[in-house]
């Protein structure tokens, strides 16, 4: 009886382990996909923030028309 229970627990932990690492792989692949896409967009000289400069991390060094226009407006306010 105890042996059967232990076998069941082993099978369960093996299955959970497989699912865990499969999920980890999925999360990693999704993250890697987003990073690759971001790199591609930057390489193509496209905006990575849908033209929304507010809270954009690369705003300071960005030379795209939207960013230049936003910098001009912010400069006027100062």
């Amino acid at each position: 009886m105890k042996e059967a229970k232990r076998n069941m627990q082993n099978r369960r932990s093996l299955l959970l382990g497989l699912l865990r690492y499969a999920t980890l792989g999925l999360v990693g692949a999704a993250g890697g996909g987003v990073i690759a896409k971001r790199r591609r967009l930057v390489r193509e000289g496209k905006c990575v923030g849908r033209g929304i400069c507010s809270a954009c991390g690369v705003f300071d060094g960005c030379g795209l028309p939207q960013a230049l226009s936003a910098k001009q407006v912010l400069g006027k306010r100062k």
Binding site: V34, I35, K37, R38, G49
Partner: peptide, 29 residues
């Protein structure tokens, strides 16, 4: 993250990506 997946012209900031993924990985372990 969802918009990054569905919109071909949008990619989320790396900082936001780390914020989205790190708790998921920690929860898995």
């Amino acid at each position: 993250f969802t918009l990054s997946v569905f919109d071909s012209d949008y990619a989320m900031p790396l900082g936001a990506l780390i914020f989205f993924i790190a708790p998921l990985v920690f929860t898995l372990f």
